[in-house]
Design a protein around this nucleic acid. Structure first.
Lengths: 131, 131, 131, 131
DNA sequence: GTGGTCTAGACCACT
DNA sequence: GTGGTCTAGACCACA
């Protein structure tokens, strides 16, 4: 499914969150399809089940998955979620942070703008938009 | 010079790094000018000198400052840092991921574009650019 | 009769209890009228008969229904349930606690009053009252 | 500080959340004062430190406390929090649930209204309002 | 078999 | 000493 980077400064459960989120967001996992069980995924990743569960809990809190007791964990449909300002702010903050990092690296203002405009256009092709 | 947010979940030494980077990148501290000493800065910020020392070490490793034994710590010229295409690609990838997440959350294409334009402009004000 | 929310974090047998209670309290099911059998209801709801059985047991324990061996399960008359002051005090205390939390969150007095008025009216429509 | 009810159907970490929240909301713990450490509280309550930490994490998420790494956990000032619609909805939902329970117990509509109005007035005296 | 909770430890970074 | 993370188990209710 994906691999963990044990040397990363991100904790394991954060990596699990990011990886699953990416799989969901880019459409690699279909809506309402079942995720691997906590136990199975923990075995595959060779980590403790509690760690995986912590990730699942957070993913549910953020509205990416839902759990059905005794059945498993499933991917949310996009349409079912109302646009959540908190999430928008959170992600916008992450982008700002990354843009600052671009400046730190030494990218000029114009280049940053080009990068952002490029992303706005390309990501639309793959990620789609509301209308 | 700047203020720390003790409540932030970023550790103090990371905040020190980020703040000094910010000051350097936006030009508030000129190239080759001297930074406050570890002892002075630790007093101003009311933190342990070890914490400041750790931040300076990391800033030096990242090529933002250099130390002259017995003299102090100084800011590197921007040109001395070569623009690292690999880093740019990595960060650009992260931003793309975040933008996909925005689409998934339900943000429309136009809104995403507005957000990106807003960041491009605001981050320039505070984060500065190469030219 | 009613619908289950498999995604709810309330267990199914609790949902069955709540829904039947609701139907009884608002008068949708008359006193002494017969409830669907465990088997029938479990088919309609597409759940395990044991789950429905468990709900009926609990509803009987709480005094909402009674069973006649070989005949079926029936709804108790409202008057047969005595109003329990202790329970009222307990639940009232919980509501007071919630209201304090609203104030702490920063809701103004007027808004709290509006919220309470709204609940008093809406819950009557669906939840019903004694007379 | 408070006591746990091991026979309650609420899990331990939920009881810890509710108890601490109540202490904060009714003003028993002053703003910016330090809560017992995770380890200490876990000893007092005779539960596992992880259980207490789980409660603290959720309390922080809901905006009642904040943590300072290496220092401890502290109570948020009310003024620092912007009114959070999500929290209002959550608490309003809890009140609705309790009101339904009142109807179930057999309280008449008029009595429920009286109870709610009484709470609105009394809780204002102790809990205070925004203006 | 599923997720949810909990225990009794451990190690880490930070203050 | 503080919170944050993680492990390797265990038990529970539920389906």
């Amino acid at each position: 499914m994906f691999q963990l980077d044990l040397r990363s400064h991100l904790s394991i459960y954060e990596q699990v969150i990011d990886n699953i989120k990416e799989l969901i967001v880019c459409g690699a996992i279909e809506a309402d399809s079942k995720l691997p069980s906590v136990r199975d995924l923990s075995k595959v990743l060779a980590v403790n089940p509690n760690t995986v569960q912590k990730s699942f809990k957070e993913l549910e809190r953020q509205g990416f998955i839902y759990t059905v007791a005794g059945k498993g964990t499933f991917v949310c449909k996009r349409d079912e979620k109302e646009v959540d300002q908190e999430s928008i702010d959170r992600v916008t903050g992450l982008i700002e942070q990354n843009v600052r990092e671009l400046y730190f690296i030494g990218v000029s203002r114009n280049e940053v703008e080009e990068i952002l405009m490029g992303i706005a256009k390309n990501s639309f092709k793959t990620g789609g938009g509301k209308k």
